[in-house]
Design a protein around this nucleic acid. Structure first.
Length: 808
RNA sequence: GGGCGAGUGGUGGAAUGGUUUACACGUAAGUUUCAAAAACUUAUGAGCGCAAGCUCAUGUGGGUUCGACUCCCACCUCGCCCACCA
């Protein structure tokens, strides 16, 4: 037989598998459905990133493992091709996205086909096709109907480079997620989804789903539930009352002033017709300008202004002045903050503007206490601090006083317990071209009118100049044939919404579409969905923990509450894969350390590339790519190939049988836990042993190939067919091997001999040796005798089948 | 500032209370070859020693234990994510 030529056999088998539809699942009649999903790529580059290949391989290996265990595995693939990422790439290349993205997608598809995955291309999904985005628009309408989509004028994050608004989740440290530009604040009217309505459920359900722990923690932190009290406050001399959220109610008696966000709508009313009106309005304008021109400065240089009003202090300890402060955010809590000496920012603000401070607690340390009393330092976050006020709780620690103080507040009627979330509503409007138009019509007579479902899709018109505008309007606003329409209700003249929806809406429901992609008249079929959803296993990047993965959960909950489905969590199991680095650094074009998978694919073939990627490190931890390392896998597969030339025998030696079954056990466990690197190392140990023996049994070789099949599907298939000449049976339709626990048992074990905890010898003894036997044997050893000579044996520790430790 | 994770040979990494360094890369010597490549064999944590062997070593310092990479406490360094969140 010839030498191993991966390119040739891989091409051959991919063709045969495709022709025979080896990996196709009959979705309607599958007995044992298993939905194995991986995050679909966005073709915002010419070709696949090695990170994509890494993720897909890890997912595919798991899918193949389940398949050999008897599941009907559905493993679809598609393209998240709408959206800013793809459009920005088109702008950069100066090619219309309609042309460029199609080209990229085609190229991605060809590359993906070469990976040797189980992908079912008959169920491909592409978010840019009208057959798909028709249903994305349908989804918008369902949320609108359910009261979960609303339009609001609010200060929102605007990326001046991408020229569109962004969702809270897309602003990273004040920068645009896509282009790293400094995000500014703009006040415009936008569409939002009420994800906050599901904050509690999104949080609670985390306890019921089998997800990577770190992903759950990230979501939990993002939802950011905090408990506190809502304190009621009256403005002196005016009939105005508002609530202030406070997570640290222990400080409520130390409060000496209140600050309001400059954008707060109440401010105008508070200063109306007073001498403060002019300077306060000027201050607000200044802050607004600053948010646009120098958003970074706001953080560095906190500013404020007194507005001439006071809180009617219910505690009778003097009036509390109201200030505006640049560090207060309008969108969190009520946009109003009670301030005291026990908060670092409040403390700094008070010092800057000479606002008096007082204390509600003191440290027990005398020296520090003096400093605190003199307001030289801010005393905060101190669980061991001693409460001074209220008097009823004096002497209690800060930590212990929390509960009683909240009760005290409620009893006295100052406020009530309350909960706040960091999570904001999902802003889904985008002033861009490359996305599904939001299916809304504005009529002068009827107001906001949703596009009737029968009129979907609202097609994205062909536009020559697709580039975003500075005006805050989508390029669609210039297409009068698109904008001008009739009101579906009164038939009168009306105009269309010209914004498109966020790309994360496209991907928030794609897993519903995959199994139902052949249904033209509905987004997803009831029966198919019942059979296949929720998704059994989802694998993807941790970077989507608060974007995609949160949105999918929200949309699934909304669909459930609208009665379309009967489950509220989309993914039973989710595993986040690790990050693939090179030279210890994240791959990026600017660093020039990006690995192009094509090069390695051409040189070594898909099997080698797949296995190398999985061998680098634990799948869920990631690893560092090293060019020179891939040769090791290449050598390994050559060795597997060479085994077929070995003379065959019927009977296997006990030694090999033992190793074989240990390997089955190890690989099986490791696959279940996605620990591919150690599974591969176990296979290497087995192959190294098989290479050394003179004869090899066909049974052993077959078992090896079965274990190898999920990792290296092509070579496994080729060698399998050699062993079964003329067989039409694919190795991938075989049963996963099971180990025999009897065969794993060892006759002898290596007993570790320690003296005072240090290893001094090892002994080959029969398994299950008794303590007394082991003692006798050990103490008679010459080496051991040397160590215990003239010493008294204090104690002997014996661990069965493992170790004996003599303490002298 | 907050959250999460990690620190083990020249390198990627293995081992989660019991032989530290599995597996792989790299390196060195050898076999083969006209030569090279490939392949194969052997060696490969550090120090001392002719050797048998001994000592030391899992970021640092303590602790628990017969025994600690593993558990506990304190600290240092790095990575990732988030951050004016009241």
């Amino acid at each position: 037989m010839n030498s191993y030529n991966p390119q040739e056999i891989e091409r051959k088998w991919r063709k045969i598998w495709e022709e025979n539809k080896t990996f196709q699942v009959d979705l309607k009649h599958a007995k044992n459905p298993y939905y194995n999903l991986m995050m679909f790529p966005y073709p915002s580059a010419e070709g696949l990133h090695v990170g994509n290949v890494y993720a897909f391989t890890g997912s595919d290996i798991y899918g193949r493992f389940r398949r050999m265990q008897g599941n009907d595995v559905f493993e679809p693939m598609g393209f998240d091709a709408f959206g800013i990422h793809s459009e920005n790439f088109a702008i950069k290349k100066g090619i219309h996205p309609k042309i460029l993205i199609k080209k990229n997608t085609d190229n991605f598809r060809e590359q993906l086909k070469n990976l040797g995955c189980l992908f079912d291309w008959e169920h491909e999904v592409d978010t840019t096709r009208p057959e798909y985005y028709k249903w994305t628009q349908w989804l918008f309408l369902q949320l609108y109907k359910a009261g979960l989509a609303y339009r609001k004028k609010a200060p929102v994050d605007w990326c001046p480079s991408c020229k569109t608004v962004l969702a809270d989740e897309q602003v990273i440290s004040g920068q645009c997620e896509r282009c790293d530009s400094e995000v500014i604040q703009k006040e415009t009217e936008q569409w939002f989804f009420k994800i906050t309505e599901y904050a509690e459920k999104l949080l609670k359900n985390l306890n019921t789903i089998d997800w990577s722990e770190r992903t759950k923690i990230t979501q939990k932190n993002w939802i950011g539930r905090s408990e506190g009290v809502n304190l009621k406050e009256k403005v002196k001399g005016l009939n105005i009352e508002f609530e202030v959220f406070d997570t640290v109610p222990q400080t409520f008696l130390a409060q000496t002033f209140t600050v309001i966000a400059p954008e707060h709508p109440l401010v105008k009313e508070l200063v109306k017709n007073t001498k403060y009106e002019k300077p306060v309005m000027e201050f607000i304008e200044k802050i607004k300008r600053k948010r646009i021109e120098a958003p970074n400065e706001i953080e560095k240089d906190i500013e404020g202004i007194f507005i001439g009003r006071y809180i009617d202090n219910p505690f009778g300890t003097g009036d509390l002045p109201i200030w505006l402060a640049s560090y207060v955010i309008a969108g969190y809590g009520t946009g109003i903050v009670n301030c005291s000496a026990h908060d670092e920012r409040d403390f700094a603000f008070a010092k800057k503007y000479n606002i008096p401070l007082k204390l509600a607690m003191l440290p027990s340390d005398k020296e520090l206490s003096e400093k605190v009393k003199n307001f030289e330092t801010c005393y905060h976050h101190a669980p061991e601090g001693i409460i001074q006020e209220p008097i009823e709780m004096r002497g209690m620690t800060w930590e212990k006083a929390r509960g009683p103080i909240i009760e005290h507040i409620e009893k006295k009627g100052f406020g009530k317990r309350g909960v706040n979330y960091h999570l904001r509503d999902w802003l889904i409007s985008r002033q861009r071209y490359w996305g599904p138009p939001i299916p809304i019509i504005y009529c002068a007579k009827c107001g906001v009118v949703p596009v009737p479902e029968k009129d979907l899709p609202v097609l994205l018109p062909d536009v020559e100049n697709f580039k975003p505008k500075d005006t805050g309007e989508s390029p669609l606003a210039l297409v009068s044939s698109f904008v001008k329409t009739k009101c579906p209700q009164c038939g009168g003249p009306a105009r269309r919404e010209t914004d498109v929806s966020d790309t994360f809406l496209d991907s928030s429901w794609y897993f519903f579409r995959y199994p139902s992609s052949d249904f033209k008249n509905k987004p997803f079929d009831e029966n198919i969905t019942k059979e296949w959803l929720p998704v059994d296993m989802y694998i993807g990047g941790q970077e989507h923990a608060v974007l995609h993965l949160l949105y999918t959960r929200f949309i699934t909950m909304a669909l459930k509450d609208s009665g379309f489905i009967d489950f509220e969590e989309p993914f039973k199991k989710f595993r986040a894969h690790g990050l693939l680095t090179k030279g210890g650094a994240k791959m990026s074009k600017s660093k020039g350390n990006v690995v192009n998978p094509d090069d390695y694919f051409k040189r070594f073939g898909a099997d080698t590339l797949r296995m190398y990627l999985m061998f680098i490190g634990p799948f869920e931890a990631g690893g560092d790519w090293q060019d020179r390392g891939i040769i090791g896998i290449s050598r390994f597969l050559e060795k597997v190939w060479a085994l077929q030339r070995k003379p065959k025998t019927e009977i296997e030696t006990p030694k090999i049988e033992n190793l074989l079954h240990k390997t089955i056990k190890k690989v099986d466990q490791d696959l279940e836990n996605l620990q591919y690197n150690t599974a591969i190392s176990a296979l290497m140990i087995l192959v190294n042993a098989l290479a050394e023996i003179p004869q090899l049994s066909v049974k052993t070789y077959k078992t090896l190939l079965l274990l190898l099949a999920p990792f290296a599907p092509h070579i496994a298939e080729e060698l399998w067919r050699y062993l079964e000449p003329g067989s039409k049976q694919s190795i991938h339709d075989q049963k996963w091997p099971e180990y025999d626990s009897e065969l794993i048992k060892e006759d002898t074990i290596t007993l570790i001999v320690q003296v005072n905890g240090k290893v001094r010898d090892t002994l080959e003894v029969k398994a299950g040796i008794s303590e007394s036997e082991a003692k006798e044997l050990t103490l008679s050893q010459k080496k051991v005798k040397n160590y215990i000579l003239n010493k008294e044996i204090k104690k002997i520790i014996f661990i069965r089948n493992k170790l004996i430790n003599i303490v002298v």
